[in-house]
Structure formats: structure tokens, C-alpha cells
Write a protein that binds this DNA or RNA. Sequence first.
DNA 1: GTTGGCACTCAGGCGATTTGAGTGCCAGCG
DNA 2: CGCTGGCACTCAAATCGCCTGAGTGCCAAC
Lengths: 340, 340
Amino acid sequence: MLDDRKLDVLRAIVEDYVSTREPVGSKVLVERHQLGVSPATVRNDMAVLEEEGFITQPHTSAGRIPTDKGYRLFVDKLTSIKTLTPPEKRAIATFLEGAVDLDDVVHRSVRLLAQLTQQVAIVQYPTLSRSTVRHVEVVLMTSTRLLLVLITSTGRVEQRVVELREPLGDDVIGELRAHLNTAVVGQRLPEAASRVASLPDKFHKDDKAVVAQILAVLADAVADDRNDEKVAIGGTANLVRFGEDFDLSIKPLLEALEEHVVLLKLLGEASSPSLVTVRIGHEVPHETLATTSVVATGYGPGDRAVATLGVLGPTRMDYPASMAAVHAVARYVSQILSDG
Amino acid sequence: MLDDRKLDVLRAIVEDYVSTREPVGSKVLVERHQLGVSPATVRNDMAVLEEEGFITQPHTSAGRIPTDKGYRLFVDKLTSIKTLTPPEKRAIATFLEGAVDLDDVVHRSVRLLAQLTQQVAIVQYPTLSRSTVRHVEVVLMTSTRLLLVLITSTGRVEQRVVELREPLGDDVIGELRAHLNTAVVGQRLPEAASRVASLPDKFHKDDKAVVAQILAVLADAVADDRNDEKVAIGGTANLVRFGEDFDLSIKPLLEALEEHVVLLKLLGEASSPSLVTVRIGHEVPHETLATTSVVATGYGPGDRAVATLGVLGPTRMDYPASMAAVHAVARYVSQILSDG
DNA sequence: GTTGGCACTCAGGCGATTTGAGTGCCAGCG
DNA sequence: CGCTGGCACTCAAATCGCCTGAGTGCCAAC
């Protein structure tokens, strides 16, 4: 049904359309690629490809453009992840090194991805639910105001202020700090939450109520799902190019991109850093974004994915390049997280 | 030169143009406003206003639109800050309460401002240089890795990891923590930095080198100017409306808005929360934004402005409404910072 | 100083025409 | 049986010209 030459034609169409942004006709196709056949033959092949749903015509007297199905075949079968050039790799390394904290890492990654791919970049903060506790600090600010600081293995710092119902002695604070850290350090956050629940029993009954109050706040902070919704976004200026291609207004796009919940859906489940996920057109789980594609992958210390990053662009995007960039950035960021 | 009626005409032109987005002619003007004169008279007045540079014609056979100078006069003389309606005030209060930490406050403020004004909202994080130190925490993670956590009066938390050249005893850590806190708590950050510099002398000479290393990192974090460059932005989808009005592409706008340095310039010096600054068109310190206006004000605990927030919109914006919204949000955020 | 009348201007919308890229089909060729 | 050149056909988009109507400036009269 689809012999090698037809696949070649499809590949050529995708590549040309991606680079020129214009429907590609049989004539230019044979001019720009060594297909070894005449335009008429290519036309026959194109007719078959259209029949099968891989390409389509915007209007009768125009060239062909790939359909979502066409891109899908292209991504699955006709291409592999490019490796970046050494200068590009160096650029990534220098851009990311020198980040002072997690916030800095995330922001740099977003900018980097946006710049590399000329698309919209999205980076999710490491999810708390997949992180482990590195340290818990209890600080008395005033006699009745207490600050909890939670530091995770991925460098996230969460803080909560607790207004105490009654003052608490330094000795109890010290005890609390010690108990907390032995109980939860190294634990994953969901488990830490349950461990915390059993702690009040270790305290003198006079202090139990206050300690329970403090730990409730901590457990709440640890379990709060909103904490997993933190994302950074960049390169929105690149959306304008989309708007020029598709004639859809970019307003709904911008609106969707301000909804962090939507973004997280787009990124999807954090996969292993070595697997790059591509969602094309209607495969993207959001109506407004039916003419866009998402290239994403997980990242995290070691090979444990603790969050996802990726880019969003028009379905007509340079998939090999985007996949390469996403893959490379995820690898570097993972490495940074591993080092600490 | 400009009698009362001419000022009335200018005000009417501004108001009509802002609400209809179309050049306004003499006829509709007398229809929609009680000016008590005929269109012909209004035309004479408009001719004078144009002569003086307050209004202009996009093309010969069109109505008039205000110039930057016209808006300036309108803002300075022809209007005062509206007070928000009670429901609006309530909306602000409920939207902002329940924020768990500073990040949350800032993000909520941005969304709130964007929603209230239907424009692009910008909120600067409290600057470190104007904050005071609330607490410094020193945490040993491993024997040679140490975490510094700095908490400011405005709720910002800065953290730095220090790789120690040699292990450090628990006693020294405790000593360091105590010295640090007595030396810098309550100090403004720039002063804290200099105080920190003199601390190593208090330690045994064996520890001095390591302590100095740690404090250097802390001083660096405290003095780092990039920390004052943190801003949040929201409502970029509203940019699209600009693009429809002005025919300039929104791409350069989006690009400018991704540059935090540019944003900070736009917001300008943090003024007292009770003073709302308005910059119109060319007064905005960025070429690309010559057709936009910025309405901003300072905020902070008490009446000390520690940062700035505001909105950016087309020069043709509803100034009274924007000023009211910015003013109100700044007040509420200031109050939250004072309390918590 | 204000008003009604009037000639003038010009952006924007509408329709007709032209152009050209690209196709599908077919008959002929190897 | 697949490939090729030729040819008639289609249709989006660009170009042109015309018309309309909102709005102005000016002037004479009140």
C-alpha cells in the first residue's frame, strides 16, 4: 500500500511544509528532493497518501499539507531524535550552570527551551508528591508565631507561618525539631505526612495540643495538591508566529497558557527522561489547542522523573529539532538536580 | 485659551473613544453628551484642541482621537480616582485572603489585577534591598554541605547551598547561627551584609576560614541585585485586544514583557501606596511600548513601599478605573504584608 | 460667539477581473 | 504495469475601480 517511495514523498512533504510554511506541490517537491521521478508520478503518490488520510489539500488548487495522522507517521517512523551539535550542547551547559537555586534552574530552563526551539516552553516544578524530605526546620519568630520550613530533595522550599494558641518553650521546639527530622527526613512526602500524624504522642500531654496544631499545618502543606501545580512558562512571544500560520486568534491560546492546570494536563504524566512524548493536534488534551503539538519528557535526579518539561508549538513544527532540544535540556536539568 | 467647555469636549472625547474604540466626531459627541451647543460649535472647539495638540485625526475624513498630551491633561485635571464599589472591594478581599505564602500573594495579586482591569498586570516581588532580616537559619545537610535560609520581613525566603571545604562541628554551627541572628535580625539587608562581614573575627582561628566562606555566600545572596528583579506577570491574553486596536503586532510587546528588567523599568521607583503613578505613551521608558500606558504604585507593610505593582494597557485605557483598581489592590496587599 | 448649510475628502467595503500555481486525467512509452 | 508529458480545469488571492457615508472646514447669517 505504502511503498518506500510514498513514504519518501510524505517525509519530503512534511519537511518542506515545516520549513516553508506553504502547501507543497508536486513540482517543487521533485525540484528540491532527489526523488528520481517526474512530478506526474509524485502526483499519483500524493493522491494515494491523501486517500489514506496522511495529507490533505487546503483548497482545490493548492499543494498538500500533512494531516495530524501524517505527522504522527512522520514522528513514529520517518525520523529519529537528532543529536545536538557540540556548540548547542555547550550553549545548554553554560546557560544552565551558575543557577543559584531551584527557582533559578527552572527559569533558566524555560528561557533556554524557548530560545532553542523558538516555541513556547513549559517547565513544571518538581512535584512535592514525588520528592523526599531533606530537612524540616522549626523557627520561633515571636513567642506565639512559628515558622515551618520544609526543604525537599529537589531543592524546593515550602514555608508556613503558624500562629500558636499558647507560647511554647524552647525545649519543646528543640524536641519537636529533632523528632520531626528523625521521623521524616528521607521519606517521600505522602509518607512523611502520615508519619507526622503519629508524632504528638511522643510529647508531654500539656504540649500535645499545640504540637498537634503545628503538625496539622505541616501535614497540610505536605499534602496540598496545589503544590504540584507549579509551572513556569516562557517564549509566549513565539505564539505570534503560530497566529500567522493558522489564522486562529492567539487569544484563547494565551488564555489557556495562563491556566496552570491546563498546562499540567498538556505536559502529562512524567515519563522517564530518556523517553520523549509527542502529542500531535487532536491528541493534545485541550480543545483550544487542537492545532498545536506538545513535545515533553520527564526529568529528575537520577532516572526518577519528578516533573515534566516540554514545548508547545504549531502542529507544523520541526519535530526532530524540538525532540532533541527537550531531550537534551531534560538531561542537563536532571544532572543538576542530582548534583544538588 | 481652553475654556471650560473645551475641557468638557476633551473629556467627552476621551471617554467616548475609550468606550467605543472609534474616532469620535462632532455629531455623536453632542448626541451622547449634554454639551448644550451644536455640532458646528463643537467642531470649532475641536479645531482649537487639535491646534494645541490634545487631539488628532487619524485621517482627514475621520473623527478625533486624543493624543498622549490629551490623555495627560485628562488624567491630571479632568478626573479623580474612582472609588470601587463595595462588591468590588469584597471581591478583592476574598480573592486575596487565604494566600498561604508570599508566592501565593503575588500570584493572586497578578491574576486579580488582570481580571479587574482587563489588562496586563505586573507585580514586583518585595525587593530584598528594602526588606529587613527576620531570621537566618543554618542547616547542616551532610558533613560538608550546608544550607543557608534567609527569611525577610516581607516573607521572602532565599536559600543557598554551600559546599564546605572541610567539615564543621555542630557546636560551631550553633555558634554561627546565634551570632548571625543577633547580628542581623531586624537589619535592612544592605546593612546586614556589612555586619556579616565582621563576624568571622568572633570565631576560633581554626574555624575562621570556613566561616568566612559561608558568610561570603550569605553576603553574596543578600547583595545580589538580581534578587530585586523578580516579578510576576499575568493577563497577557488581554494584549490581544491591544493588537486589534493599534495595528502593531503584539510580538514585540510579548517579547518586552518577558524581559524582567524591562518590566522593572516600567514599574519605576516604588512610590507610596497612596500615590498612583501614570505614564502615558511616550512617557513610558521603552520604545516598543510607546503606544501603551502604565499605571503603577508602590506597596509594602505599613506605608513603606518595598515593591511596585501595576497594569499596562493601551494608551486608550480607562484610566480612572485602572487607577482605582491598582490603588485598591496595593492597599490590600500592603495590609496582608503588615499582618503576616 | 453660535449656528445651519454646503462642498470636499477619503477610508473602507463591494464586486468584477485577472493571474498563476497546482491538480486530475489520459494517451503513449519503455 | 508503472512512469511520463501534455492539457484542460479549478480556485484562492491579488488587483482595480467604483461607491458610499461619516466627518470635516469654511462661510454667511443670526
